[in-house]
Design a protein around this nucleic acid. Structure first.
Lengths: 134, 134
DNA sequence: GTAGCTGCAAATTCTTTGCAGTTGT
DNA sequence: ACAACTGCAAAGAATTTGCAGCTAC
């Protein structure tokens, strides 16, 4: 049977409160404010368990370490800010992409990652180029 | 100045002869048939150098270690077969995806990975379900 | 009371780096 | 000659695992 430990609650809460997928280290940092002695191994063990229970899902971006978020309802994609490296959910989808595959290939699914600047970093980039804020 | 070592030639040849992106370990295995004493560190160093020279490009798929292939000409994406795990180039692109990002976000680029069955594996999957070949 | 959980440290896996010896030009 | 390159082994970074003590139920 599974237990309700302080550690697991803190890990769950950390992810629920973030509005974006978190790296294991980010989960640790957030959860340690509630449970100071928390260890990274416990974070990994709980992330794995929560994914298996279906409460969390792993978000894999190309060339990035896995992040974790609450299981959402719909198919969605991600956006990574090239300045702050944070990842955000994108609730849109280009739609049917079967036409892109070579003839004879069957497309069942897809992953899409957008790259650019998030709202917080757009003004910073503009300022760095000496442009006035919009 | 850059040198033409046996090791570098073997690494180049291994990648040129494979018709798919290779993992560093696969490059090592292939290149060692020509240069038996070759070490993995040399493979990594040369892969990095060849990418910087623009001869190779890294292929990052979500949750996968990086693979390396000869540089292609255009922006393109990848298709991974869920049965044989092989990766293929996709020379199409959904186009401008800015509309998908949240308001205030600036989209500069994107990565797309399609998943499904490649031509070789579609008949196998059909057969496994007891369906007649088309 | 006890099975599951936790923290710590050691082990794994993939990749990078330091170093002393080797080699292409 | 001599700077670039190589193999080896050690160092790193991310993740997993072994273990003895702790704790929810």
């Amino acid at each position: 049977m599974e237990r309700n430990t302080r550690q697991r609650s803190a890990i769950r809460a950390a992810i629920a409160q973030a509005n974006r997928p978190l790296l294991p280290q980010e989960v640790l940092d957030a959860a340690q404010q509630e449970v100071p002695g928390l260890g990274i191994a416990t974070v990994y063990r709980n992330l794995k368990a929560l994914v298996e229970e279906g409460e969390l899902q792993a978000v894999h971006l190309p060339g990035e370490n896995p992040r974790f978020e609450l299981v959402g309802h719909k198919h969605h994609h991600h956006f990574q800010c090239r300045q702050c490296q944070r990842v955000f959910d994108v609730h849109g989808c280009p739609g049917n992409l079967s036409r892109l595959a070579p003839k004879g290939f069957v497309v069942e699914d897809h992953d899409l990652t957008l790259y650019g600047r998030c709202t917080s970093c757009v003004p910073a980039a503009r300022a760095a180029r000496g442009e006035p804020a919009k």
